[in-house]
Simulated assay, not measured.
Amino acid sequence: MFVRGIRGATTVERNEAKEILQATNELLQHIVAENGIVPEEIACIFVTVTQDLTATFPAQAIRSMAGWELVPLMCSLEVPVEGSLSRCIRLMVMVNTEKKQDEIHHVYLREAMRLRPDLSKLTNA
């Protein structure tokens, strides 16, 4: 068994708690569905946000999901690089799996698709 990282990112239109929580939940649901994982397989999740998102902790969305109470979560700020994507939420889901690196499906939604167009699928729009 390996520990693999699954990347994901999304954006929100406004710095509002409800929108941040909804977008975080949506992103994690896509990651779970695309990779066929369950909470028990997850070692931890790193959550980052850009400095313009201050209304809430995105990890609250994950913590409130049934069955996710014991998954270790850590929030942090993204490095503030000039010209980088604004209002962005990123997840790094560390999962215990037998999958090979090239079998992992990373998920980029909304404007975050610009971050990794090579990994973004049209179905994730």
Rank of each mutant, 00 (worst) to 15 (best):
N25E: 13
C75F: 06
R116N: 02
S86A: 13
L77H: 03
M113H: 00
I89Q: 02
L77S: 06
H105E: 13
C75K: 01
E82F: 12
Q60F: 11
S64H: 09
L21W: 07
E111L: 09
L119Y: 05
K99I: 08
E98Y: 11
P117V: 14
Q101C: 11
Q22F: 11
T24C: 15
F2K: 07
H106S: 14
E98R: 12
G36L: 03
R14G: 08
N35K: 04
I45D: 10
A43F: 09
E78A: 15
S84H: 15
L21Y: 02
E111Y: 02
A66F: 05
T123H: 00
P72C: 12
E78P: 01
T48A: 14
G5P: 08
R110S: 10
I6C: 09
H106G: 10
M65K: 11
Q60N: 12
L85G: 04
R14L: 08
C44Y: 00
V3A: 11
V3F: 13
E26G: 06
A61V: 05
V107H: 01
E82H: 08
V32P: 02
A23H: 09
L28I: 04
N25D: 13
F57I: 04
P117D: 03
V12R: 02
V3M: 14
G83K: 07
I45Y: 01
T97V: 11
T10R: 15
Q60S: 09
V107Q: 01
R110H: 09
V95P: 00
Q51R: 12
A55K: 03
R63W: 08
A9D: 02
V38G: 07
M74L: 15
E69Q: 13
I45T: 10
N96P: 00
L115G: 06
E78S: 14
L119E: 03
S86T: 14
N25K: 15
S76T: 12
R14N: 12
A55G: 09
F46V: 08
T11C: 11
